[in-house]
């Protein structure tokens, strides 16, 4: 916003200059770009849209531009890593590495989460440190362990590429390549990544599919033992909780307390969505668990004690006890959250 205002005033200055030097019949052309809004097909029953998204409506060319940037390795210092290198469509835009690996094999701090249904999330990242999706892309671009570049470096790489220039012009009403345009278009693209066509959705919408017996049994265990946190149609209530998972050995990790400064938030993480969970292994904030079975074994055997351990676990001897059959059924149910259309 601030940037575009500034640009506007630059244009005005320019116009003033031009009009001064040219004498009487100064005229200019107003070009209107046909750039329709994209219909996001917001599914029924999903949580409320993040209000910042209303300031950055997805448009045809905005999304096209954002997708191109998302897949462009030029966003990294040595042109080897794109956003899509860590957020791969076949993994529901997550990663198969336990911890994100950036340029030159540099290892970061956390597991790359799937980029799905971002428009319904009120805060981003494991600790919720960003509230606007538009503010997120700069982080990987400049982080040493990720892309280790800078926004000016990125602009310099793409601003002479005709395809990019044309897309920026079409997407943002004639504005050239700007930092704001990069952030906004990437977010516009991400807003379109909505996953709501899993078997679970089709059963819910009564589109002819039904749960198998195992899936149905799994769903009832889930409702009883998991739903207090993995709630809503996103399977996260978007709260921050410590559930005693094995602790990241890096001293950089503080979980939610890194953001709020509250000791009581130490090692709390945003409850992850379980949509497409089949595709996003390994699991946990730094990929502690290779499989869903490992997650369930861990929860069932007992988690780490902590002062701020979630009361649901505290009241149950730091466990969510599950029989082997319940685990199998739960996994069968979680796999009904897989959306094949979304990953293809």
């Amino acid at each position: 916003m601030k940037n575009s205002l500034r640009n506007l005033s630059v244009i005005f200055c320019f116009l003033t200059l031009v009009s001064c030097s040219s004498d009487d019949d100064f005229s200019y052309e107003v070009v209107l770009y046909d750039n329709p809004e994209v219909d996001l097909n917001i599914p029924e029953g999903f949580p409320e849209i993040n209000s910042y998204a209303y300031n950055n409506i997805s448009t045809k060319y905005g999304v096209e531009l954002g997708k191109k940037l998302f897949n462009d390795k030029q966003l990294s210092a040595d042109n080897t890593i794109a956003c899509a290198s860590c957020h791969m469509q076949e993994n529901a835009f997550a990663d198969h590495n336990a911890i994100g690996i950036g340029i030159e094999g540099r290892v970061g701090l956390r597991n790359a989460p799937p980029i799905q249904n971002m428009i319904f999330m009120q805060a981003y990242n494991w600790d919720g440190n960003k509230l606007e999706l538009e503010e997120q892309p700069l982080v990987p671009i400049i982080t040493y362990e990720e892309m280790d570049s800078s926004i000016v470096e990125v602009i310099e790489k793409i601003e002479n590429d005709e395809e990019y220039v044309e897309l920026f012009i079409k997407a943002f009403n004639g504005e050239g390549v700007t930092a704001e345009g990069i952030y906004n278009s990437i977010a516009q693209y991400e807003y379109t990544l909505i996953s709501a066509n899993s078997k679970y959705d089709k059963v819910k919408r009564k589109e002819g599919e039904t749960f198998t017996e195992s899936e149905a049994l799994g769903y009832s265990v889930f409702q009883e033992k998991c739903m207090s946190c993995h709630n809503t149609e996103l399977f996260t209530d978007q709260s921050y909780r410590n559930i005693g998972f094995p602790v990241n050995p890096s001293t950089e990790e503080g979980g939610r307390s890194r953001v709020t400064g509250e000791l009581e938030d130490y090692l709390k993480f945003r409850v992850p969505s379980l949509r497409n969970i089949e595709y996003t292994a390994p699991y946990g904030s730094f990929g502690q668990f290779a499989s869903l079975k490992e997650v369930l074994d861990y929860l069932s055997n007992g988690v780490l004690e902590a002062d701020n351990l979630d009361s649901i676990l505290k009241e149950n001897n730091n466990k969510i006890p599950l029989t082997e059959v319940e685990k199998e059924n739960l996994i069968a149910f979680m796999k009904t959250l897989s959306d094949e259309e979304f990953i293809n």
Binding site: T251, G254, R258, G261, D265
Partner: peptide
């Protein structure tokens, strides 16, 4: 001893 990281509460 590493207050930026363990928690911002210490940082303050």
């Amino acid at each position: 001893a590493t207050p930026s990281v363990h928690s911002a509460a210490n940082m303050e």
